[in-house]
């Protein structure tokens, strides 16, 4: 058995040293195998990568006519986020409006609007924000965290908001 093994070893080793052709053919083989199985591995990678874009879409919010200056409305996104949308001006452009998340950027508690203080207040650590989401006091003020904003757009005099959505299927 042992002699056989050593014999075979020399048989394997010899052509590698000896033949240029062998080097070429070995390179061709290596290239072919890498290309074929490499492409297969790449397909597998694509297969495993999420096939859906992150689910976000423009959702109808309100028509402009019934959304006066100074008013705000609470919108819940299909995925459940509570969002406060306020109209600050009457220019008729999208900059009139601001859509703020009601999740405190500090530790994720729910903030709520205090109309008498004209501020959003987070009860967890007494954080407060003004009507455009800038921090007024509490931990958010210390680390200068604003309330997250959502994108808005106006199309045909209708207001749309871009929010995460959950899929039906």
């Amino acid at each position: 058995m042992n002699t056989e093994v050593s014999e075979s070893e020399t048989e394997v080793a010899e052509p590698i040293r000896r033949s240029f052709l062998f080097a070429v053919s070995a390179a061709v083989m290596a290239f072919g195998l890498t290309a074929g199985y490499g492409m297969f591995a790449w397909l597998i990678g694509v297969f495993l990568y999420p096939f859906r874009e992150s689910a976000e879409s423009w959702q109808f919010l309100s028509d402009l006519g019934s959304f006066g200056v100074g008013h705000s409305l609470t919108y819940q996104s299909p995925a459940g986020q509570k969002i406060v949308v306020t109209r600050l001006a009457d220019a008729g452009t999208v900059d009139d409006f601001i859509a703020l998340s009601s999740v405190c950027p500090h530790l994720g508690c729910q903030v709520h609007w205090e109309s008498n203080n004209a501020r959003f207040f987070c009860p967890c650590h007494n954080g407060a924000f003004d009507k455009v989401g800038k921090p007024l006091s509490g931990p958010p003020k210390d680390s200068d965290q604003t309330l997250p904003q959502y994108a808005l757009q106006i199309k045909n005099d209708l207001l749309f908001i871009e929010v995460p959505t959950t899929s039906l299927t």
Partner: peptide, 17 residues
């Protein structure tokens, strides 16, 4: 069934795998 439908129709190269 629905997940296999997803594999076959939605997932990239799902039908192939």
């Amino acid at each position: 069934y629905e997940s296999i439908r997803t594999i076959t129709h939605d997932v990239s190269y799902g039908w192939y795998i």
